[in-house]
Design a protein around this nucleic acid. Sequence first.
RNA 1: UGGGGCGUCGUCAAGCGGUAAGACACAGGAUUUUGAUUCCUGCAUUCGGAGGUUCGAAUCCUCCCGCCCCAGCCA
Length: 559
Amino acid sequence: MEEEITKSNFIKTIITEDLENGKNDGKVITRFPPEPNGYLHIGHAKSICLNFGIAREFKGRCNLRFDDTNPEKEDQKYIDAIIEDVKWLGFEWGETIHYASDYFENLYHFAEELIEKGKAYVCSLNAEQMRAYRGTLTEPGKESPDRNRPVEESLDLFRRMKAGEFDEGTYVLRAKIDMASPNINLRDPIIYRIKKMAHPRTGDAWCIYPMYDFTHGISDALEGVTHSLCTLEFQDHRPLYDWLLDEVSVPCHPRQYEFARMNLNFTVMSKRKLQKLVEQDYVEGWDDPRLPTLAGIRRRGYPPAAIRNFCNLIGVGKKENRIDVGLLENCVREELNETAPRVMAVINPLKVTIENWEDGITDELDALNHPQKPEMGKRKVLFSKHIYIEKEDFMENAPKKFFRLSEGREVRLRYAYFITCKEVIKDETGEVVELICSYDPATRGGNAPDGRKVKGTLHWVSEEGSIPAKINLYDRLFQDEDPEADTEHFTENLNPDSLVVLENGKVEKSLENAEPSMVYQFERLGYFCADSKESSPANLVFNRTVTLRDTWAKVKKKR
RNA sequence: UGGGGCGUCGUCAAGCGGUAAGACACAGGAUUUUGAUUCCUGCAUUCGGAGGUUCGAAUCCUCCCGCCCCAGCCA
């Protein structure tokens, strides 16, 4: 991995300065703290690459920590999926995976410490009253009648909360800060609530659970995190983060920095919408290749290196952004162009009969697996009397600018021979169903000894011995450029049953052994991933990854 | 209208008082056994706006404008 170091990252600047000033004993420890309540998507990749990338770059460490403080929404299946996704992106966290729930005991003691210091109290206001007492954006809040409850009484109540003596909603533990603060987060925030619910990891051990604000800072401190990186919406929480770490006897005081989350145009990123799409069966599951989930794009064939590079290119700042997905796709193409073996496939076949080729005879031709990389080797492809070309590679009454096949014109079949179209056969509806062509034996391999040139080169597939495959030509799930658009506005570009004919792999067997998740470049058609879910040697299924640039499309548009 | 943030090319993004990097997109051109790839070339006299300080401002000061976030016993 040769990730470039970009300067467009103010956090790296801060860390560099901290290091120069000898802070944190020269250590850099970050963490990636997802709540296991859904699948990770491309937006999370930014945070992952940032946190793990910084750890790697500064020779520090990044903890994977699950922020599992709300059993209502969380599930083991999300934990498993998240672990797999982070691994897939290429990052490591050492032996241990951390869980906020591992600190429940510590957290509880810190809460008691706060009560003992008179910095927290048990409050009996119900949710509705709490809201009323909180005040508004412009008006200060009112102090709870319980605010001056004696320490001993709060302690007793809190212990009984823990013991399960009270129903949900009857009591909460609140930090005693300032009900008149212009920052609403400081108006005596709730730090513990009663939830009589089993936790995926701690089971029935607890019936009180700590809130995010209380948990997060302390977890960071317990892990020795030096730089706690989160998204912009937590900026207003920073004073609370700092207040808490100052009041409680934790080993260190990490610093929180906020950055803007990644937004992509035309891309469904909200957890709510993704959940709806999955649960209401609009898609096959969280790993549906149309989805921008990490599991989805993995199945789609996006290489992890491309994602990492993308996250590097977009930078890290505080500005709201909506990045063009085109940049992502460019990163994917760039990576795949280097690594994907090329192969010929015909998606929309048009039969071609070579009139001067003897029936029953086959020829084996050399084809490069990568035109610019001979080290990737070559393979043999089969040529015979009957072959298929792409329907759109033939045009009647073609304009001069059309470089492909037309009646009377000569083109090159890639790695094979020059052929000339002699006759066009149509069915009763007038549709072209077959071409009769002649080939020039002297052009075997694709070059004419007499030096004559040909403008077009076509991909093709031999009828004999070709491999049929299924191709999922579906595209990314689009939504309006406006991310607020509803799921109803999604357009599906679904084409599940197209049949493709792949070049014969008789000699190299490369395709018959197509590895699931391996991405191939189908000549001129784009990049396709052998579907890791459905592919087997007997049943090849490909998902479209990204398309190639098509300047012929532009030429057509202009005319 | 309280508080916290943010405004540099179509989209990201460098720049931190010395006269606007780079990437994607876009537009031309060259090479090419796929109209791909690769390779050149062009693309902000101007930094949300208006004043001011200065020999000199995107960078400092003042005012104004616009956008985002916060009133879950979610994270």
